[in-house]
Amino acid sequence: MQAETSHPTVPNLIHTNKPSRLALKWKEMKKSKHHYLLMSPYMLIFFTFTVIPVVFSLILSFTYFNMLEFPRFVGLQNYSRLLLDDDVFMIALKNTLLFALITGPISYIACFLFAWIINELSPKVRAFMTLVFYAPSIAGNVFFIWLIVFSGDRYGYLNGFLMKYGFKLEPTLWLTTEKYILPIIIIVQLWLSLGTSFLAFIAGLQTIDKSLVEAGAMDGIKNRWQELWYITLPSMRPQLMFGAVMQITASFAVADVSIALAGFPSVNYAGHTIVTHLIDYGTIRFEMGYASAIATVLFLMMIGANMLTQKLLRRVGE
């Protein structure tokens, strides 16, 4: 008999070609095509009026463009001029940072606290109080009221009050005295700050699942502050993030309040901000390349503030 030769068994190697990440993404997009179709009108408007202008502004910031001649590439000249030679921009930067550091956190916390308190009221009272707190942010003649309050003659409400009760003998020129301008602008902005963020917080508080509160009570939550930290705030992270973005934008992009109260430009640029500096070069001097550089710096500051806020909000409830 012929000896049988034994061969080692070699396992069958099955080569499976895993689809690439791009292919998986495309498959997922095809599966959700109806969602993308519904989003397409908004995305078209968003890209046309937000993304494309931002990209063009970034490109123009490296050019000299006066609206009459074709843009001329100048490299980093606009940025070096802005950061090294523009003393007025340094004043505007200091005012804007000071304004944002004060009004941003205070207005954000105030929006949430007022929304939290009002949410505990009955529906009819809650609706009325929401209107009362939200009304200043949409009032048309709000600056006219504050101009009367801080009027520099004896007929101004603040001067009249201080002189009536003997705190002052002569009226103070509040809006033309350098040391008073920025504090007044901050006060008025804080009064106007209960806007969209306030409504978003009210809506977020209305959507919190009551069963979470009951479960938290069973797990050892003993008071309203623990309930706020461990249940309320984590449950409304999207609204908190939206409110933070709105407050950051409002605090860094202040201009209307400064122009309406202190004039344009204000005394010794005491109320000058980055946005008023941008308006000066963009709509008065028509130095669009330089104005684009100012806008780019402001845009990067807002992105940095948003990233910092996101990191802080991730720690809520820990």
Rank of each mutant, 00 (worst) to 15 (best):
F70I: 10
I59V: 14
H34E: 15
K25M: 12
I45D: 08
H35W: 15
L76M: 10
L38G: 09
R72W: 04
E69F: 02
I14M: 04
V51T: 13
Q77M: 07
N78M: 01
S40P: 08
T16S: 04
Y79V: 01
Q77C: 03
N78C: 02
R72M: 03
S20A: 09
K31Y: 11
Y36E: 06
S57I: 02
M29C: 09
Y42L: 08
V54E: 05
P41Y: 04
L22M: 08
S32P: 04
I45M: 15
H34Q: 13
T16N: 11
I14Y: 04
Y64S: 01
L22Q: 08
K33L: 10
T16A: 12
L68K: 14
F56H: 11
W26E: 10
K18M: 12
K31S: 14
Y36H: 09
Y79F: 12
L37W: 14
Y64N: 03
L44D: 05
V54Q: 10
L68A: 13
T48V: 13
V54M: 15
A23P: 02
K30V: 10
L76W: 07
M43H: 11
V51L: 15
F46W: 14
K31P: 04
K25E: 14
Y79W: 07
M43Q: 09
P53E: 12
I59E: 02
P53R: 05
N17V: 08
P41K: 02
V74H: 00
M43E: 08
F47P: 01
E28H: 13
F49Q: 13
I52K: 14
S61T: 02
F73L: 11
L58I: 02
F62T: 01
L22S: 11
I14S: 03
H34R: 10
N17E: 13
W26I: 15
Y79I: 02
I14N: 03
M29S: 13
V55E: 07
L76A: 07
F56L: 07
Q77T: 03
N66P: 00
H35M: 12
F46Y: 15
L37S: 14
S20T: 14
H35G: 14
G75K: 07
T63N: 04
F62W: 05
N78F: 00
Y36T: 05
S40M: 15
V74T: 03
S80Y: 06
E69S: 05
L24F: 06
P53S: 14
I45Y: 13
L24T: 09
N78Q: 03
M39G: 06
L60S: 00
L58G: 00
L76R: 08
F70V: 15
I59F: 05
N78A: 03
M29Y: 07
M39F: 09
L68T: 11
K33F: 13
L24D: 11
